[in-house]
Design a protein around this nucleic acid. Structure first.
Lengths: 128, 128
DNA sequence: CGCATCTACAACCATTTGGTTGTACGTTAG
DNA sequence: CTAACGTACAACCAAATGGTTGTAGATGCG
């Protein structure tokens, strides 16, 4: 399964980080332009510390990285990580849709009755 | 912009809903199989009410829908919504990467010095 | 009917989140 | 050196989250 190259906790962190408009905005900006935390902070109507925390959340999700340059801390978006997040959903979608398709096929059966032994795709009960 | 066919609040809701392992698991299951809330609840080591809340979060994000059948409430995954969420990230990625690529081009310049007037893509300051 | 099941919802609690302010420390500019 | 800037981090706070239990309304079954 391609999906679980990442821990559940990591997936949680990624989606959680993306679930806030300010953080998505920050991510968008630093993917374009490396920016210092204070430069970012100037753009939003909240304290420096608040922006600092948002950046920390993005960093924990590995969506951005920081590198120190003199007294500034430059925040850089990890474009690859965004791709990874997207692929993550794509994989889920693929996985889920392919399973769902089997159901669709069954539902599309013209004769729901009289098919008690022909089930080729048993859809395991997959107990937790 | 394709992205903002959804409200920021809706995007928040989608990512928030996906930022929990139990909810992702529920979503996976109901994309495969329509299931009642209590059937879902039996699968997890938490109370019925807790699962009910998770389903409500998924529902608010439009990732699942419910339909009543007798005394049961059947939860059904909205495969289309998962695709929408995936496309959302794909759009972000596209947008961000295309902007980032301009930067990459500049950084890829073979001669960092002696090129002060040749900048063809000025990268507007994009003041907020 | 009477009882079990499924659901809905309120009240409550601990923890996390998202914000604030204040303080301390390293770095750069004068 | 001193002052200003950028950062880090702690303490604090209100609100949201994720869980619990309890109660009550529908629905189905014997």
């Amino acid at each position: 399964m391609v999906v679980d190259a990442l821990t559940e906790a990591e997936v949680n962190a990624i989606f959680h980080a993306l679930a806030d408009a300010t953080r998505r905005d920050i991510l968008g900006r630093v993917l374009t332009d490396e920016q210092s935390v204070s430069a970012l902070a100037r753009r939003y109507e909240m304290s420096f510390a608040a922006v600092q925390k948002h950046v920390a959340v993005l960093e924990r999700a590995l969506l951005v990285s920081k590198r120190r340059q003199g007294r500034e801390q430059l925040v850089q978006g990890e474009a690859a990580a965004v791709g990874r997040a997207r692929r993550l959903l794509a994989d889920y979608e693929e996985l889920w849709r392919s399973r769902a398709r089997r159901i669709d096929d069954l539902l599309a059966e013209p004769e729901p009755a009289s098919r008690t032994t022909t089930s080729t795709t048993p859809i395991e009960g997959d107990a937790g």
